[in-house]
Amino acid sequence: MYMYLPIALTSVNYLVVIGLGLSVGLLSGLFGVGGGFLMTPLLMMVGIPPTIAAATDANQIVAASASGTFAHWRLGNVDVKMGIYLLVGGFLGGAVGVQVIKLLRATGGADFLIKMTYVVMLGLVGSFMFVESIHAMRKKKVASAAPAAQAKTAAPEKKRNGFFASLPLQVYFEKSGVTHSALVPLFLGTFVGVLAAIMGVGGGFLMVPVMVYMLRMPMHVVVGTSLFQILFTCVEVTFLQAYSNRTVDFFLALLLLFGSVFGAQIGTVLGKKLHGDQLKILLAILVLAVTVKIVLELVLEPSLLLAYAGGH
């Protein structure tokens, strides 16, 4: 029942770890998020040091997102062109974000800013998605009752598209069925990359709403494209963490990915059975629950007032 982890230097019940991988992989396949914002704290709860937990999580996300991307690819849900633009932006943003955090650490108070960014971003994204999804579901009901109302609701979207249309380098993204300036996904990718680097997460839960609300992509294509982008980001992170910090525990990653690759497949199949708005509401609830957890951690006195230096 127990397996010793050579880099984490601890022993874990492998059934528990596989179970964690399965649960987070399921969420990954369902919502297109890497799940790092859930997995890292869960691993810390089973006794894995924070630095090892974060780095190894990136390694298992490679497997889960490869599995999820593959599944979504077959379903025709991956917009490779959009994914590449976002990825390039994400790499640029990540590099900028790392420099920002270095500067903040030098001046002190970086931890406070990181936590606050986390709470504010998660809270905003979660609340917005929740309210918007409920609103959209109500609209649908009204629209089905009175089809004429649909014409009215289409007007503001056209206006938004009009603003994006005025930008140069217009590109048509066939898979998503949208036309945007190449600068838009590049800029949004950079923005998410900066935030993800500051917060120390992959950024899937930020990228998904950006694709849904700013790029107006269909929800199912968003999930596949997000996983595609996360896959490449996590390949880079895993290699750098193993090479520079020696914090990737291969056995821990194996246990997690054993669960997560199956979880991602189950999540993808489940996702097919849910409507886009239902998926959005579920993700919003998840994001809000994590926000509440972080707020409680910030406000309540920790049971231990010390932690090893080097963690998040």
């Binding site: 390694n59 490679v62 497949q265």
Partner: peptide
């Protein structure tokens, strides 16, 4: 070690896929 970790994760993910 880093390359091995990435390749095995990729292989596991696509194999299960």
């Amino acid at each position: 070690y880093g390359i091995m970790s990435v390749l095995i994760a990729l292989a596991a993910g696509t194999a299960v896929g």
